[in-house]
Computed example of a mutant assay.
Amino acid sequence: MSGFDEYAALIRELSTRQRGGERAIAAEAERRRGLQSGMDTLGRRLAAQGGHLDRLGEAIGTPMASVPEAQPAAPPGPGTGDGAIGGGAAAPGRSGVGAYPDGSVPTGDPAAELAVAGRLADEADRHGQETEALARRPVLLPTWSAPARAVAVYAGCALVGSLFMLIALVGSPLPVSGMDLVAALSCAGVPLMSFLAGQFVLARWGRPVLADAEAPAGRYVPLGFVICALVSPSLFCLYLILFRLLR
């Protein structure tokens, strides 16, 4: 082989190696861009989750601790996997909280750390949705519909009011002598008190913690007034009849 042929072979080998190096550099740059994009997306998700938690905390009267503003994301570094601070998923601004406290990622692969951080964010989203769903359900009879809940509350208050009627009737010196003061107060005052008690219960425990501002309170005022006005006096009349029969 002549010297020129050797020189041409060396040039071809150098060109091949150069093209291989360029492809490796391009692949590494693409990998870094993918990691950076994943970090940016994860940062936006975490910021949105923080805002959601703040809104939930304000709704239930427990403001969350202020979350520091997100800093520009840096390419993730290798994590230790032993609970020490570090890695792409390390909690920013929180001392003593490592990237993976449970040691679930023993490798130092940034892509693996980013994938696990994404799964943790998915889990946080799921828990946040469950919490919001619970916050949008009333504390009192959460599985009942609003009309059924109102009927149950007003009927219960009317029943309690009828028991007060019974106590007043038993303590009256003239229980069956006609519509005396006790009877008048029972037929007029107790239904009104039962109605107001039902209004209070529905306003306090019958409304979701997290509700839209324009959403109705679900107190069903006409329905409640009719129930309390009919149930309590009807039971009082029944008590009068039973007392007269038992004399």
Rank of each mutant, 00 (worst) to 15 (best):
G103W: 02
S234L: 12
Y220D: 11
A24Y: 02
E214F: 04
L53D: 09
A24H: 06
A229D: 06
A135M: 15
P75V: 15
A121I: 15
D40I: 15
R32G: 07
S145Y: 04
R204G: 07
L210Q: 09
L238W: 06
L134D: 13
V170Q: 04
L163G: 04
A146Y: 02
L245I: 11
R23W: 06
Q36G: 09
A91F: 06
R19F: 08
R17L: 15
R136P: 01
A65G: 08
Y239R: 01
S15T: 13
P78H: 03
A59Q: 05
G108T: 09
R126F: 00
P138M: 10
F236E: 02
G103A: 06
L53T: 08
L140S: 01
V67D: 01
E123H: 10
F195R: 03
L242F: 05
L196Y: 08
A65Y: 04
F195K: 04
F200D: 01
D40G: 09
C157D: 00
I227N: 04
P216C: 10
A9K: 10
Y7P: 06
A158Y: 00
D54G: 03
Q36L: 13
D109Y: 00
G171V: 08
G83T: 11
G98W: 07
P72F: 01
R32V: 14
Q129W: 06
F236Q: 02
P173N: 05
G81I: 12
S2W: 02
S194V: 10
E123Q: 11
M193K: 02
L114A: 08
D109L: 10
E69P: 11
P173Y: 06
P101E: 03
I85M: 12
Y220S: 12
D5V: 13
S232N: 05
E22K: 06
I241H: 03
R17T: 14
Q36S: 09
P68N: 07
Y100M: 11
A135V: 12
L35F: 01
A111T: 11
Y154F: 15
I25H: 03
D5I: 12
E113Y: 08
L202A: 04
D54F: 01
V153F: 01
L238S: 10
G178S: 09
S186V: 10
A27Y: 01
G96A: 11
G43Y: 05
S234P: 03
C228H: 01
